[in-house]
């Protein structure tokens, strides 16, 4: 009997440990507005309107801190405990058809807050509904939101978050204050990543950090999770550029150069052989064509007009790849297009 309870204790402890093993993107999510970097304008406006928030629409590229901002704001407004009852977070992984908007969101929006006298009325008397990834809401669901937003604005503030503002219907846009999140600069990114490395005790080569920042293209979330993954492959030694490239899926430069040289040779068989090799090595089409195109842009052997032609075929080929076209064909046809456009 005694041992049974002991085991229970052990299990409980390990469950607690597993929360310590959170992915870094969650672990290092900023806890307060002051910790959020690079979005000064937005932050000033938000801080000033804290007591009487408007409906908000956050938009901007991924990994710029949209979700973090609203979560941090909610935490500052309500405190960590009340937050659970005052904030409803819905995102694309929840069932979010029109029914949910009609029922769940509406019911939540119109429910009154039972006032907590012990809080000295410090926190504002409204709730927040966060609709994350709002661009994947159907149009019908967005239409259904319109009236709900107006009717219960006394009780509830909405915060819509999306990447592409064009996916939100104008009727919703006009009901919200728009906040644009700009991409996080290199310096801010480096600061944050270095901070995480210090906290986690990760040792790295400086070049690896540069590579990480370059490849993530301003998306801090990507950079952090890549760093997280790469660090798992290096327990005791320093994180190298190669590990970063491998975890990100970047194709090594010499392979890309090999592809372009084969195109320059103008021999179909040679191109096919090279492409076959690249695909067999498991590199994936989308990454290959992106990197090949970047290289082509720097290539002096190709003149401007021809680069335009290549860019046009790239567009078609990228679309075909995303639709699920065969990797071999599509990469081959890009290389052939480049080959034709070489003098």
């Amino acid at each position: 009997m005694g041992s049974f309870f002991q085991d229970q204790g052990v299990r409980f402890k390990s469950a607690k440990d597993s929360t310590l093993n959170l992915p870094w993107i969650e672990k290092y999510r900023p806890k307060s507005l002051n910790n959020i970097s690079a979005q000064e304008d937005t932050l000033i406006t938000l801080k000033n309107s804290k007591d009487n928030l408007p409906h908000m629409l956050f938009y901007g590229p991924p990994g710029t801190g949209k979700t973090s901002t609203i979560l941090a704001l909610a935490r500052e407004l309500f405190g960590p405990e009340l937050m659970k009852s005052r904030v409803l977070e819905l995102n694309a992984s929840h069932e979010r058809g029109i029914d949910v908007i009609r029922e769940r969101v509406k019911n939540y929006a119109r429910s009154f807050i039972i006032s907590d006298s012990d809080r000295n009325n410090q926190c504002p008397g409204f709730k927040i509904i966060i609709l994350d990834e709002a661009d994947s809401l159907t149009k019908d669901a967005q239409e259904a939101l319109r009236r709900t937003m107006e009717k219960y604005s006394e009780l509830t503030r909405f915060c819509l978050i999306c990447n592409q503002i064009s996916c939100i219907i104008p009727a919703l846009k006009s009901r919200c204050t728009l906040f644009r999140f700009k991409s996080i600069g290199i310096d801010n990114m480096r600061n944050r990543l270095t901070y995480i490395c210090e906290q986690e005790g990760i040792d790295y080569y400086p070049e690896a950090m540069d590579e990480l920042i370059k490849d993530s293209q301003g998306d801090l979330r990507k950079a952090i999770s890549w760093l997280n993954n790469a660090s798992k492959l290096h327990k005791d030694d320093r994180v190298t550029v190669d590990t970063i490239k491998e975890t990100v899926g970047i194709v090594p430069d010499d392979i890309i150069n090999g592809l372009i040289e084969s195109a320059a040779s103008k021999s179909y068989d040679k191109i096919q052989e090279t492409v076959n090799d690249v695909i067999a090595s498991g590199y994936f089409g989308k990454q290959v064509i992106e990197q090949v195109f970047l290289k082509v842009l720097q290539d002096l052997r190709i003149n401007e007009d021809h680069k335009c032609n290549i860019g046009e075929s790239l567009g078609i080929i990228d679309k075909r790849l995303v639709d699920g076209g065969c990797e071999l064909f599509q990469v081959l046809s890009l290389m052939c297009a480049i080959s034709k456009n070489m003098d």
């Binding site: 992915p23 979330r221 990507k222 890549w226 090595s281």
Partner: peptide
């Protein structure tokens, strides 16, 4: 999977990529 070209970015960035060449 055979090729991650069709897997959306957010998922790719949440995973550790393991490439198995032929």
């Amino acid at each position: 999977c055979k090729s991650p070209s069709k897997i959306i970015d957010p998922i790719r960035s949440r995973c550790l990529l393991i490439r198995v060449p032929a």
